[in-house]
Nucleic acid binder design. Structure first.
Length: 663
RNA sequence: AGCGAGGUGGGGUAGUCAGGAUAUCCCGACGGGCUCAUAACCCGUAGAUCGAUGGUUCAAAUCCAUCCCUCGCUACCA
């Protein structure tokens, strides 16, 4: 048992869009973990809430013609309900815009100021006069000062990849309204993160959780820590103490939500939130997505330390989610919405919970495909687990009317014990997939046992022996219900009831898995899982394919290519050595072009606009590495660049030798 | 570019930190068994030079070095 009470949190969903299964990749394992701890006798409080501040919510609210608060509430309710439908049950689900969080954030920031961890500095910020607000760099686009490529405010994302400092970008434009943005001087406040380097190195050394979180953060801290700007010029958010024109950066008040939500919960239940947050060591475990590791392993512990709070005990970071092998992307259509695409189709939360938990290691990327989803549900949940439970209960009910009054074989209990130990080992290491493999292993053991013992044969010769076998199987079924409850809570409850229990399985502990099943009548069983039909899966696949196709149509209009693609083109100057008309063709000229290191034969469609005499001797621009093609039976090894319908030849302004590379 | 993660039979995936004999599990293929059960379940067979090369060792998927490939992240995006 730990000294401090156990607190588990999940990364806060941002209230600017609906829940998709990428979200669940973090929430389902967290819920699974919490349920497991509870089934193991641990007292746990499970806290989450919605993240409401920041520019994107202001922008989206304006677009929808509502207030940021109203937009936040809409999605807050949405997430709260969706999580419940998925069986992800928080003890409290708060909002970062609620008064308690405003108060806690200001209090914490004041302590940082009092402890000398905050200073002010004047910096330049992009400002859009039309929108009348300062723009986060993500909302600014322009030209990279280093390479001249189109770039984002913070990074030359399409060109040289360099990080851009505020004020560096040329021709800044507001991405919301498209007008020219300017720069304005503004006083901002910085957190002295650089002073926490030593602390963080020691802290990360002892941080529990998954290795990806620790390694990633460690590399960052060892490299360089810059001080962190913790204010924004925005109306929407938590006011920075003493400055009505500034709010704190959302990444400050969002994690503080973990504290304030604990406060809200503690107020309701009459306990002290300080027991969770104000003493070391804490028993705080954060479940987060892999993309926000540095916030939780660097900024957050430094803030807590600087303000005199306890620091988290563990950070458990999940890997990314893919759809059909593609990177999860709303704009490209590779998305599965939790409500529209899953729950509202009548699919059980249990199936998706099982898939998300059992697919792979928690820190690796997880691929969702309807086909694989169907395979795993049908083979593992329905066939292996569901069928063992059903054939056992069915046989017991049919032949004995319930649980026969016979003793249990020791080796069965020993096997369950082995499973429990293996599961617990895996859970301690946050190896959720391995834990579930052990669970499913027990179901396979059950199938094996009933198959080898063949009670349907025994019943004809030795009724008592058959009774003993089926009793053993009933013990296994009970054990399976208890150990699988954290994974598939609804199905576990159903099995629990079919074992003759009237109460909630949640009120029982996993250790009961080795206990007896009291003799007595059982209700008639029914299968707990049903198979996913091919037709249904095909339908879902079609829906996804359609969405991807439609997204593709939109995207082709403004498709960009990465710089690397452009680099593949070998464009250079050339000089036309000779030219002749291609026989039987109106448009084609056969050219011999000097491109520096060789003379190329190129067929060009410009006979209508120029004559062989005119073009001979002219400098031209050539794509030299185009795939060779046969035009009118004549091989063409490149392409002459010309503009427009009149095929106006492109040529260098100053004279350069043939073969000069064009960039 | 830097940092992080990964490359294991046809597909997916475990094992790598703490090196050891026939490399796990799910599917797929093939053959057999069983009939209590949701055409289920059980058994067996084929199939992997564990990304490449070199090294350490009695012994390497595992440790070390170099290289190739894939993905992710890179702070005044949330």
């Amino acid at each position: 048992m730990r000294d401090s009470p156990v607190l588990v949190t999940c990364g806060l969903p941002y209230t600017n869009g609906p829940c998709h299964i990428g979200h669940l990749r973090t929430y389902v394992p967290a819920d699974f973990y919490v349920r497991y701890l509870r089934r193991s006798g641990e007292k746990v409080v499970f806290i989450c809430g919605s993240d409401n501040h920041g520019t994107p919510i202001v922008v989206n609210a304006e677009r929808d013609g509502v207030t940021p608060r109203a937009l936040s509430e809409r999605y807050h309710i949405h997430f709260d309900q969706t999580f419940r439908r998925m069986g992800v049950l928080f003890d409290h689900f708060g909002m970062t815009d609620n008064p308690v969080n405003h108060h806690r954030t200001q209090s914490l920031v004041n302590r940082l100021i009092a402890n000398g961890h905050v200073y002010s500095r004047v910096i330049q910020q992009s400002y859009c006069t039309k929108c009348g607000r300062f723009l986060p760099d993500r909302y600014v686009e322009g030209i990279c000062p280093h390479c001249g490529s189109p770039a984002r405010g913070d990074e030359c994302d399409q060109g040289c990849g360099r990080h851009l400092e505020p004020g560096e970008i040329k021709e800044p434009t507001c991405m919301v309204c498209g007008t020219k943005a300017g720069f304005r001087d503004q006083e901002h406040y910085f957190f002295r993160l650089s002073e926490f380097k030593e602390f963080l190195l020691g802290y990360l050394e002892g941080l529990s959780g998954t290795l990806n979180a620790r390694n990633y953060a460690m590399g960052w801290v060892k490299d360089e820590l810059r001080d962190w700007c913790i204010t924004r010029t925005l109306d929407w958010g938590v006011k920075f103490p003493g400055r009505d024109d500034l709010v704190v950066y959302v990444w400050v008040d969002a994690p503080i939500g973990y504290i304030s939500f604990t406060e809200e919960w503690a107020d309701e239940t009459g306990v002290s939130w300080k027991d969770y947050w104000c003493r070391e060591p804490t028993a705080i475990t954060h479940f987060i997505g892999g993309d926000i590791i540095y916030h939780h392993c660097i900024f957050w512990p430094a803030l807590l330390k600087g303000a005199g709070y306890g620091t988290p005990h563990a950070v458990v970071a999940s890997g990314m989610l893919k759809v059909d092998g593609h990177k999860f992307s709303k704009s490209r259509g590779y998305v599965v919405w939790t409500n529209d695409d899953y729950l509202d189709k009548g699919l059980p939360a249990d199936y998706l919970r099982y898939y998300l938990l059992s697919y792979t290691n928690h820190t690796k990327e997880l691929n969702f495909s309807w086909k694989v989803f169907q395979e795993r549900v049908n083979n593992e949940l329905v066939n292996t687990l569901g069928n063992f439970v059903y054939r056992t209960l069915y046989f017991a009910h049919k032949e004995f009317g319930g649980v026969p009054d016979v003793p249990v074989r020791k080796e069965i209990v020993a096997e369950i014990d082995r499973s429990l130990a293996a599961i617990d080992r895996s859970m301690q290491e946050y190896e959720f997939k391995t834990a579930i493999d052990s669970m499913m292993g027990l179901a396979a053991y059950g199938n094996n046992y009933i198959q080898a013992s063949a009670p349907w044969k025994l019943i004809k010769t030795d009724r008592d022996a058959a009774a003993r076998v089926i009793k053993d199987c009933l013990i296994l079924v009970q054990a399976l219900a208890l150990i699988f409850e954290p994974v598939i809570p609804e199905a576990a409850q159903e099995i629990w009831q079919m074992l003759g229990n009237a109460d909630r399985i949640e009120d029982h502990q996993i250790s009961g898995a080795t206990g007896d099943v009291p003799p007595g009548p059982l209700p008639p069983p029914r299968p707990v899982f049903s198979k996913l039909e091919d037709a249904f899966i095909a339908e879902m696949d079609e829906l996804l394919a359609k969405r991807v196709k439609e997204a593709g149509k939109k995207a082709t209009k403004m498709k960009t290519i990465p710089f690397e693609e452009f680099c593949k083109l070998d464009i250079r100057t050339g000089k036309v050595i000779s030219a002749e008309k291609v026989p039987k063709s109106n448009k084609l000229l056969k050219l011999r072009v000097d491109i520096g290191d060789e003379i190329r034969q190129i067929v060009a469609g410009m006979a209508e606009f120029t004559t062989p005499e005119e073009i001979t001797g002219k400098p031209v621009v050539v794509v030299a590495n185009l795939q060779p093609a046969k035009i009118f039976g004549i091989e063409s090894n490149g392409m002459i660049l010309a503009a427009g319908e009149q095929a106006s030849l492109l040529m260098p302004e100053k004279e350069v030798p043939p073969g000069t590379k064009i960039r």
